[in-house]
């Protein structure tokens, strides 16, 4: 019995050296060219959001009445707006607001939705029914309409936009996590953990939650794109950031009067929103190809 065991041991050793989940992930993610480019864009955007105020060529709040509605040029890369403020500087500084709003809204929605989804899927019964029916109620409103209603209720402002976007994210996260939980719950090792006396919290956190992570990562990236759109939409409608803020949606909104004469005032923030949302969606698609077990098996 000793010799076969030692032989198996050496085999095990060989495979162990090669195996690393992160390396495996990187190997297949590298092949997703579009997602790779999109991730580089997003990383740059995040860096810009952090150091924005220091690298912006002009003060984003300082009006310049000598340079009103100037088109893109060497001195103003993206032109100037109706007060002569440099649009490029405003976009750079605004990146921080857009990213902060969408990240925090999605992150809060993720936490709340995951907790509700885990509880719902794991315990089942009437708890499940209550949580899922409440989610259905929220689902029955179109996303933006729900957000408008929430902001109308809470009053305009960036923080309330975060709350609104969070609330309409919660049911999607809850439903996703519930589904993954129902699957994970069937694993024998979950029953094994229960039989050895693990608490519900322990079973959920150690054995079920890890099974939902790959789906969550994909969904979070997709959801950030949606959140940026929704936050810009709310600001455009005057329900979000205040008018002097360099938020992308606000810039769209205040520039729309000049659409006929100086279209760059609207096009530039439009491009910023478009590229950012596109990048997040491309990353989400790439991650899905790499992480989704249903696709991976094929």
């Amino acid at each position: 019995m000793t010799s076969p065991t030692t032989m198996q041991n050496s085999q095990v050793q060989n495979t162990q050296k090669k195996y690393s989940p992160l390396k495996e992930f990187w190997k297949s993610f590298k092949k997703q060219k579009a997602a790779l480019v999109a991730s580089i864009f997003i990383v740059l955007l995040i860096v810009v959001a952090f150091i924005g105020p220091y690298i912006a060529p002009y003060d984003p709040f300082e009006p310049n009445y000598d340079a009103l509605l100037e088109g893109p040029s060497a001195s103003h890369l993206a032109g100037t707006d109706e007060y002569g403020r440099d649009i490029f500087s405003r976009l750079i500084v605004g990146a921080k607001i857009s990213l902060m709003v969408s990240f925090s809204a999605v992150f809060l929605g993720l936490i709340l939705g995951t907790i509700l989804g885990l509880i719902s899927g794991y315990f089942g019964g009437w708890i499940d029914k209550i949580i899922m029916r409440s989610c259905d109620v929220l689902f029955s409103f179109p996303d933006l309409l729900l957000a408008i209603a929430i902001v109308a209720l809470l009053g305009p402002g960036i923080n309330n936009v975060i709350i609104a976007v969070m609330i309409f994210s919660v049911p999607s996260f809850a439903r996703l996590v519930r589904g993954a939980t129902l699957n994970a719950k069937e694993n024998v090792y979950v029953e094994a953990a229960q039989s050895m006396g693990a608490s519900h919290v322990r079973v959920l956190w150690k054995h079920i939650f890890p099974e939902t992570i790959s789906e969550l990562i994909i969904f979070v990236t997709m959801r950030i794109g949606t959140a940026i759109l929704a936050a810009s939409g709310l600001s455009f409608l005057g329900l979000g950031a205040s008018p002097e803020m360099p938020e992308w949606g606000v810039m769209l909104s205040s520039g729309r009067d000049y659409l006929g004469t100086s279209s760059h005032v609207v096009i530039m923030p439009g491009i910023a929103i478009f590229l950012t949302v596109l990048a997040f969606n491309l990353i989400g698609d790439g991650l899905r190809d790499v992480l989704d077990p249903k696709i991976k098996n094929n």
Binding site: N187, V188, Y189, E191, A192, S195, M196, G197, H207, P210
Partner: peptide, 22 residues
């Protein structure tokens, strides 16, 4: 059931499914 959980343990049929792969 703390007493039970310590006194009684289980071994499962499928050694592939009963150990958490993570």
């Amino acid at each position: 059931l703390k007493h039970l959980r310590q006194t009684v343990q289980m071994i499962f049929q499928d050694p592939y499914a009963s150990l958490n792969p993570r």
